[in-house]
Design a protein around this nucleic acid. Structure first.
Lengths: 275, 275
DNA sequence: GCCGATCGTCCAGCATACTGAACAGATGGC
DNA sequence: GCCATCTGTTCAGTATGCTGGACGATCGGC
């Protein structure tokens, strides 16, 4: 019927959900998030999703009633309840709370931009950010997703997976997303880099996400079984990544990971001397 | 100019949703947000919502597939996609972006905690926060909701409503939520305070939300028709609210409101020399 | 001002998502 | 150890939400 434009996406959605309205609602929210800022009407949404117009209208009205979307004129945009639920989610992640506290205690890293992210498939979702002294004018990018293969957080997380899990995620992958000329373009290059990460103890994004910017990342294990690994990173301009400063930042990242790895220890004992 | 004729079909909200699965999904998310941090199984959710267990299970599985909830063991908790969508919503609100920029330019207020919130019914949803120099250890409460009647933002927003709209929101209300001994407890007290706010030009929360903490708030008009009014506030310890400092903060709030009220002026002209 | 195109909404019939009960595994009390 | 009581999951039947088409309203082009 509809032009078979998106093979993978529609296949995944085609697997019969026992609550199709909910699955479709998710697709609608995704679509609205992509084109955030501008409202979309039922017709446009139906066209882009390849679904009946009436169904979309019904779902959108239901979403509007619960506040997940808001009506703008005759169209729909993301609603304010998403801020509420997103905040509740972040508050429910213990690692986020401790991250903010721990960042301020870092001797060197507290002056830099430190971020916390969680691995999800082959993407990292950024959950928290500590803004250092640098006047970065980045607005809160919490919730942003980036390919794991071009970020220090992502590579730190991927390097920590057991081989089977990693193979599963990379299965069938041919090209990796490329954001800068330095981005790793092939699975082989990625695997080689991950081996380096394992030996070195931390991951590095050397202008692979943004030119002129480097990141260092370490893995932080999840707490709930089955919860994807987290990772923390420190971001700085390449010019500031001096031979003096980097080792201090790496040490800070390890401190941060130590603190976040074992919530009990962080709560009860001040800090273990060292390892 | 169109004043957005209030749709009379507000009463039609009683009719059941045409996409019940979506409405129920919203109820599930609300419930999970209330008890954030601990997972809830299908049985518990079904019991608390008074809905069939199977239906809840189906919806939860669909929610888990799209990432709005995550499985923790055998139960469900809020999922990471909520952070993504919440971030996308905040990014889509122009006022949020400008708020962060404008806060840094405030001569006095930039050192304090400044917040942006939007009115929704009789509650304020906090959308953005500028952390001043004070080492407040509050973690990001973005997305948090507070009663409008106990907050400076809320009273500033309520005072700006036209009388009909205000009456509609207060209709049938007997007791107001009380968080401290200073909280306004009655609708009459609230109306009197709102009159003061209108005359004075700004709202004040004098230990009505938290003891020892005062807030000053000003209204910021919404941009889209039908969009609830926003409000900005500056929070500080009561001891710091000196007769010297407060007028400066009020002036800063007015500057902030000026800047956020007219996006075009903020974008095109640097600043009107009126101040 | 007219017309064509496209929009959002409404409605009835059919397919299907929802329901209730039965199922097996996990848990705690005694 | 056993049983009582939970849990989450499965399955078939039926009510019901979904679908496609028609409707009136709106916008832009000629």
């Amino acid at each position: 019927m509809t032009q078979t434009a998106q093979p993978a996406d529609l296949e995944a959605a085609d697997i019969e959900s026992l609550a199709p309205a909910v699955t479709r609602a998710g697709a609608i929210l995704d679509l609205l998030a992509e084109n955030a800022g501008s409202a979309a009407g039922p017709s446009e949404l139906a066209r882009r999703l390849g679904l009946p117009k009436s169904s979309i209208a019904n779902i959108c009205n239901a979403l509007a009633e619960i506040g997940l979307v808001r009506r703008i004129g005759t169209g729909f945009a993301l609603g304010r309840k998403l801020a509420e639920l997103g905040g509740a989610y972040l508050a429910s992640v213990d690692a986020v709370q401790e991250f903010y506290e721990a960042c301020r205690l870092l001797p060197t890293g507290s002056e830099e931009t430190v971020q916390l992210a969680i691995l999800d498939g082959l993407e990292m979702t950024y959950l928290a950010r500590h803004d250092g002294l640098q006047p970065v004018r980045l607005t809160s990018q919490i919730g942003r997703r980036l390919p794991a293969t071009v970020t220090a957080t992502g590579k730190a997380a991927l390097a920590s997976l057991d081989p089977d899990d990693l193979d599963r995620r990379l299965d069938g992958l041919v090209d990796l997303p490329v954001l800068t000329p330095n981005s790793l373009g092939s699975v082989d290059a990625l695997r080689a880099d991950l081996a380096t990460v394992r030996g070195r103890g931390y991951a590095m994004d050397d202008e692979e996400t943004v030119e002129g910017v480097v990141c260092f990342g370490v893995m932080i294990p999840g707490r709930q079984p089955g919860e994807g690994p987290y990772a923390a990173s420190i971001t700085l301009l390449k010019a500031r990544a001096t031979d003096e400063r980097v080792p201090l930042l790496i040490a800070d990242l390890n401190r941060l990971a130590d603190r976040l790895s074992d919530p009990l220890r962080a709560d009860r004992t001040p800090r273990r001397p060292s390892a």
